[in-house]
Each structure stands twice: as C-alpha cells, then as structure tokens.
Amino acid sequence: MKSPRDWDKPQVILAVFTGIALVALITAASTSAASFGIYNSAWDGSSKLSAEAEATGSTVTVARSVEEYDSVPPKGTIAFVLSPDKPYNPSARQNLQQFVQNGGTLVIAEDFGSHSNALVQALGVNARFDGHLVRDDRYNYQSPALPVAHNVKNHSYTENVSALTLNHGTAIRTQNGSAIVQSSGYAYLDTTPNSKLDNNETITNHSVVTTHSVGQGQVVLVSDPSIFINSMLERPGNKAFVQNLVSEHENVLLDTSHTSQLPPLMAAVLFIRDSAAAQILLGGSGIFGLIVWGFHAKKVKSRIPNRADPEYRQSQEMNAEAMSSYLQQKHPEWEQDRTERVVTSLQDQYRKE
C-alpha cells in the first residue's frame, strides 16, 4: 500500500536528478581536462604538484598572466612552466627574464612542444629540448618509452632521489649547463621514429634535468613535463625531486598564463581574489540580499504550508476525490469499496504524521 509520500515520487526523482546535474555542473566548472593542468585531478593533470607545494609550507600562487611574476619576491620563489600551449611574446619573455635575473628560479618542463625553446633562448640559456622521444630498452618502467634515468649527480634537488622515471619524454642538448640527472648509457633518441633502435641512432647518456645560472637566479630544464603529472609523481624519485625543488623556496608560482584555459569557476574565484572592486561588489550584493530577505522573510514564510494547520489538513483531505479518481484509472479492476478503503487508509496515515 502506498504512503502519502509515494505521491511525491516524481518530485523526489526530479530533485535527485537536479542535484546530480548541479553537482556535475559545479564539478565541470571547477575542474579541467587539460594535460598538465593544475586543476586537472585525472592521471594526466598536475593537481598533486600544487598539493605537494602546499604540503611543504610554501605559498602557492596560480599565475594567469606573466604580470603576476611581479607580485612575488624573486629570491625565494620558484616558478613552473609546463609545456606551454602558445608562445611567450617578447614582453612576456622580458617578465620571466627579469624574474630570473633578480634571483628567481624558473623550471621549464617540455617534451615535444614548439614554444619552450624560444623561451629558453630568450632567457640566454644555451640549451634546447631535442624534441625526439628518448627510449631505453634496458632501464625502463614497463616500456622503453618510460626510461628510468638513474645517473643522478649530487645536488640539493636530487637529495634522496635515486632515479627519475620519464613518460614519453625527450632529452636536453646543452653546452653550458650542469646535467644533474641523465639517462642510462643504453638510451637513444628515436629520430626515425619507429620505436626501435636503428643504425643511425646511437645509445648513450642523455641529459634529462639540467641547471643554468642566469644573473642572480637559475633556470632548471626538465625534458619531460610528465614527471610532474599526478600518475607519475607516484614513481620512485619523482615525488622526492618535486619536494626538493619546492622545499628550498618560500613561494611557488604555477604559471598557467600560456596553457589551456582555467575552468570557469576557478577563473571566477581567482578574479574575485585579485580584484578589490569585485570583492566590494560581491560583498555588497550579499548584504543587499540579506536586507531584502529580512523584509520578505515573513511573507515567504506565510506562503509555506503548515502541515499542522487544520485548514491545510482539510484542504489535503479534500483531495480524496482526486485520489479516488487516480486509483480508479490506475486499477480499473478494483471495486468501489476497495478504492474507498485505500483512500481512507492513506488519509489516516497522513493525519498521524
């Protein structure tokens, strides 16, 4: 036998689906599917990079424009640029160059993108990302395309790091930098490319992390941005490497200025955070809303039915005819007295609530 609540099942189902849709909408608006994205919590995102930085006690800033480099003190700040999607124009390059010259540390991680080498050159660093896949048939994690670089030099960034695991990375060609992590001597660049060692390809050590002094600061090149993604941080050495990078700095700047767009909700949050006018407008709107609610609360409350009100109960009981009509349509095989008994039973249950 149905209870009075059963009459509201369509509304309940609608409410549930509305709730699910709302949660999905908020999730979509606050997350990103962009590879290496700071707000991407999937395997190819870098949301854990931000979490690791915060765990060390560093102050984390998500930079939507290069002007935000001016908002942090260069000394004591490390900035991350992960495989930018578009080139840095001369003005933007100048911002980054000034940041490094004045004592900042800039990490540029790239594999096959076409925009990082121009930035490296503009910084005065004599090094380039090769752009070909580095493979290692002997020392790798599950696949030669995931080489394990275990030639690690003594450096503050490599403390407790026995090796780094790449995921379809490349190599760094440099003449004046210091290679602090290199592949094994069995690695080669797949220049063909055909996923195998050809006669024109040579097995040798390849640099995967290099450091370069620029002015009072430093540029760190990493030949695979995948080292910083969520799934690869779990590989031995990768997380320790990230922790070493950020723990030496009080501030961490995550440069998203030249990568895929931020999710709408996070963009709005960051805009409000950085805009005094937006904060005043939002705060004023909230206060105005409270005032309006105060004036109309009684009116709104008066329109909400009171189940204990005798008149309300009487109006509900008057729906007996509608209930009876519904049951007759639903169960035409029922006799009239059976229909009446069901209606009476439902009304009795309703009165007891």
Score class of each variant (00 low, 15 high):
K2S: 06
D8W: 04
P10F: 09
P10G: 08
A15R: 05
F17T: 01
F17C: 00
G19W: 10
I20A: 00
L25V: 08
I26N: 00
I26W: 02
T27R: 03
T27H: 14
A28F: 13
A29D: 11
A29W: 06
T31L: 09
A34R: 00
G37H: 04
W43F: 01
W43C: 02
D44E: 10
K48D: 14
L49P: 03
A53K: 00
E54Q: 07
A55C: 12
V60Y: 02
V60S: 08
R64Y: 08
S65M: 13
V66C: 06
E67M: 03
E67V: 09
E68L: 02
Y69W: 09
V72H: 14
F80L: 01
K86W: 08
P87D: 01
P90S: 13
R93N: 06
Q101G: 01
Q101E: 04
G103F: 01
G103A: 05
G104R: 05
D111N: 08
S116M: 01
N117F: 04
A118R: 07
V120S: 11
Q121Y: 11
G124C: 04
V125C: 10
F129D: 05
L133E: 07
R135A: 01
D136R: 09
D136A: 00
D136Q: 04
D137F: 05
A145H: 05
L146Q: 14
L146Y: 13
V148P: 09
A149T: 04
V152A: 02
K153E: 12
K153R: 14
H155C: 00
Y157A: 10
A163D: 10
L166H: 08
R173G: 05
Q175D: 12
S178N: 10
I180K: 01
Q182I: 02
A187R: 01
P193N: 13
S195I: 09
D198L: 05
D198K: 04
T211I: 05
T211C: 04
H212D: 04
S213Y: 08
G217T: 00
S223K: 00
S226W: 09
F228W: 01
N230A: 06
K239C: 11
F241L: 10
V242Y: 12
V246P: 03
V246C: 08
L253S: 10
L253V: 04
T256G: 12
S257N: 10
L262R: 12
V269G: 13
R273Q: 15
R273D: 13
G289W: 06
V292R: 07
W293F: 08
F295M: 05
A297N: 11
K298L: 13
I304L: 15
M323P: 03
H331D: 14
E335T: 15
Q336D: 14
Q336E: 12
Q336H: 09
Q336K: 15
Q336I: 15
D337E: 11
R341T: 15
V343Y: 03
T344E: 13
S345W: 10
Q347I: 07
D348L: 12
Q349Y: 13
Y350S: 10
K352V: 05
